[in-house]
C-alpha cells in the first residue's frame, strides 16, 4: 500500500527564502503603521477628530495582514 503523501514537502532552504520574503513584507507594513500612528497623533493634537476611526481601521487591517502572514509561516512548518 502506497504511503499517502498529501503534503508537499518544502525543503528548509526554500522555507527560509519564503520566510525572508514574508519578513520584508511585514517590515514594510509595520513601517506604514508607524507612519500612520504619528500622522494620527499629529491630527489629534491639531483638533481633528474625523480621521481617527479610519486610521484605526486601516491599522487593524495591517495587523490582520501581518497575522495572516505569520500564520502562513507556522503552517509551512507543519
Amino acid at each position: 500500500m502506497r504511503a499517502h503523501r498529501d503534503r508537499r514537502y518544502i525543503p528548509r532552504f526554500q522555507r527560509t527564502t519564503i520566510l525572508l520574503g514574508i519578513l520584508c513584507v511585514v517590515v514594510l507594513i509595520v513601517v506604514v503603521q508607524l507612519w500612520l500612528l504619528t500622522a494620527t497623533m499629529n491630527a489629534y493634537l491639531g483638533g481633528e477628530r474625523d480621521l481617527l476611526l479610519a486610521a484605526l481601521i486601516v491599522s487593524a487591517l495591517c495587523f490582520a495582514l501581518n497575522l495572516g502572514l505569520l500564520r502562513y509561516v507556522y503552517k509551512l512548518d507543519r
Binding site: 528548509r12 520566510l19 519578513l23 500612528l37 497623533m41 501581518n66
Partner: peptide, 29 residues
C-alpha cells in the same frame, strides 16, 4: 530559520502595539 521566525513574531507583536496605540488615540478623541 528559527531566529528569523521569532523576529517575525516580534514584528507582528509590534504591529499589534501600534493598533493599540491607534485605538487609544481614537478613544481619547
Amino acid at each position: 530559520y528559527i531566529s528569523r521566525r521569532e523576529l517575525g513574531k516580534f514584528l507582528v507583536l509590534t504591529s499589534f502595539a501600534f493598533v493599540v496605540g491607534q485605538a487609544w488615540i481614537w478613544i481619547k478623541g
